[in-house]
Design a protein around this nucleic acid. Structure first.
Length: 288
DNA sequence: CTCTATGTTTAATT
DNA sequence: GAATTAAACATAGA
């Protein structure tokens, strides 16, 4: 459940479980998720160290250790952290665990769950490029509307595509982008460089609203259960909660996108449809 | 069986 | 060469 608000919830949970505590055991044998590959990479770099703090940038989590070492966690599509008793049995899809002992002697255990295994756990002795190359984080850094307007003016790609670019805004995923654009009354197919300065202002507020609402719900819920609190995401075919029109569905940048054609205005000229739908290409041959 | 999925990277096509 | 698209990754649920 990984977009900025979800990752922030995971950060708070990990910070609560690990900060100030000493790692007694860390383990992951998943060679797809763990980097570097050796199964002992995680334990060697972390056992015996104390956790300084847990920070977040976009969708990346960083656990900083007292010796300067660190490990990064990206939740991918289905990654999640839970806190359990040290002696609790493994959860379903548990891919890693970090056991700690606090100064008062109490123990705790953070478990990493990830059904699809698109997530990553990266052990390093310095910051990694994946995390350093990120753009400003809307929650941690805030969004400078003027700076964002200047950035958006440089691209003619669909606006939804651009705000999901992690080097432009860190942490905005398919849900946030979809919801924010609905709040801002902007058609997600609009060309980035065709937005007006007022559009950008509404977009910034829309992002803040989408992030804030999602974070509030997650924090208040006190549960990890999935809850549909969205205005349009996943609601294609249903009615727009603002104007009552039917929510449309398109694909932008390979991602399903829901929006209201009536109250979300389209900026810029639609791309000239390339005429070649004819070649259906039915390659079914199995390479033997 | 078919289709879809909160993300990112890489190969293929235009 | 830049821009756009599809595929790939691995798994669960409708």
């Amino acid at each position: 459940m990984p977009e900025l608000p979800d990752v922030e919830v995971a950060r708070r949970r990990l910070d609560h479980a690990l900060r100030g505590a000493t790692i007694t055991r860390a383990h992951s044998a998943d060679r797809r998720i763990l980097r570097p590959k050796p199964p002992r990479a995680l334990s060697c770099a972390t056992e015996g160290r104390t956790v300084r703090d847990v920070t977040r940038r976009g969708k990346w989590l960083k656990i900083l250790l007292d010796d300067g070492g660190r490990f990064f966690s990206h939740l991918g599509m289905t990654g999640w952290w839970v806190e359990r008793d040290a002696n609790a049995p493994p959860e379903r899809s548990e891919r890693a665990r970090i056991d700690v002992v606090r100064e008062d002697g109490r123990t705790a255990s953070a478990r990493y769950l990830d059904a699809r295994r698109f997530g990553r756990l990266i052990v390093a002795d310095r910051d990694i490029d994946e995390c350093s190359a990120l753009g400003p984080d809307p929650l941690a850094d805030g969004i400078d509307a003027t700076a964002l307007a200047a950035t958006l003016a440089k691209s003619s790609r669909p606006i939804k595509d651009v705000i999901m670019d992690q080097t432009i805004l860190a942490g905005v995923g398919n849900i946030l982008a979809t919801e924010a654009l609905w709040h801002a009354r902007i058609d997600p197919r609009s060309r980035s460089n065709a937005l007006t300065r007022a559009d950008v202002g509404r977009l910034v507020r829309g992002l803040g609203k989408a992030i804030g609402e999602e974070l509030d719900v997650r924090m208040a819920a006190g549960t990890d259960e999935w809850r549909d609190i969205f205005a349009v995401y996943g609601h294609a075919g249903q009615r727009c909660p603002r104007c009552g029109s039917t929510i449309a569905r398109v694909v932008i940048g390979g991602r399903t996108t829901a929006f209201c054609k009536t109250c979300q205005v389209r900026r810029g000229t639609p791309p000239k449809q390339s005429r070649s739908r004819s070649n259906k290409r039915a390659i079914r041959s199995r390479p033997l």
